[in-house]
Design a protein around this nucleic acid. Structure first.
Lengths: 168, 168
DNA sequence: ACTCTAGAGTTGATGTGTCAACTCCTGTGG
DNA sequence: CCACAGGAGTTGACACATCAACTCTAGAGT
């Protein structure tokens, strides 16, 4: 019985609590955004990314890169958001591929208010709950986790050294 | 109103990095489980919970409580897992409501191997990456976050008197 | 006994995420 | 010029998650 366990009970509990905290927090933020702005976290991400592009249209590939989402995920999401009237695909090129993605007026409005609301919620539910020590530990862990898990490391700063295996 | 930002850029970056770390970690674990055992995280949770009941059948409500999932989520998940042959609903009572949920032999097998694999992955990708100090800080934050966000706090005992409830 | 209601569980609709297969375009080599 | 490899984007199928509406049952209260 005990020998089949790869983690101690106390480690499992740590893991459970950690996961649970994350889930509760994300759920809370998701609901806050939903109630206040009627948009989802996924929609928020897309809106903000496009908004930061300051009016310029983006390609699906850029969005995909910038959000670190699968291209197909982006495409599905855009389809839904187009239906809701937040974004538009403006075709250029002969046939219909090669679309540029832009915010509609409504998309811009939503993005703007959502940033305020969501930022405030993040502060209330997360940032304000951290002691400075907790903040720095969590920040450090996050960075180290991203470093060790992200398959395409190294696009952050101007690519200081050519990384050998870092193709995408 | 030009500065519509409610968080400083550096705070946004902190938040983004943290979310990103979580996503990468969960994705990694999900894939590990998928590759090694061909089961999903959701399936894992159900299998383990039922396994810990040591053969006793559980009700949907118990599962729902124990996993902290919506009842409907549990029901849907059970439907899928019943189709895969991991669990069975054994009706009792006159008509068909009031089902008891139990693992099939295959479910038991899957649970057992998955616990080993998943536990090992958690250790490798998470626990081993933490210094003792980081671990204790993160543990503390998790607990406090769960306390402040969990809507049904304190069902362990009647009230706030009894802390320390490693029960569920 | 009979109704009424609260709880357990299911179902359907819709949104989210992932994988694999597909289409269309474009650039390159023959 | 043509074929074709490869990239960009879409689509379909399926699992997961959430909300609201529904069905049954059992247990009051009268």
């Amino acid at each position: 019985m005990t020998e089949t366990r790869s983690l101690e009970p106390e480690e499992w509990e740590f893991w459970d609590t950690w996961m649970r905290a994350q889930r509760l927090l994300t759920r809370e933020l998701e609901r806050g955004l939903q109630r206040a702005c009627d948009i989802s976290k996924a929609e928020f991400s897309v809106l903000v990314t496009l908004w930061q592009a300051a009016g310029r249209e983006m390609r699906v590939g850029e969005l995909s890169e910038s959000l670190d989402w699968d291209k197909s995920r982006v495409s599905h999401q855009l389809t839904r958001m187009e239906k809701r009237g937040f974004v538009k695909r403006t075709q250029y090129g002969a046939d219909g591929r090669r679309a540029g993605i832009g915010l509609t007026a409504e998309g811009r409005r939503a993005a703007q208010s959502a940033v305020l609301v969501h930022g405030g919620n993040i502060r209330r539910h997360f940032l304000d709950s951290l002691t400075p020590e907790q903040a720095s530990v969590i920040r450090a862990w996050s960075e180290q986790a991203v470093d060790s898990l992200d398959p395409h490391r190294g696009e952050t700063a101007g690519d200081d050294a050519v990384r050998q295996g870092a193709e995408r």
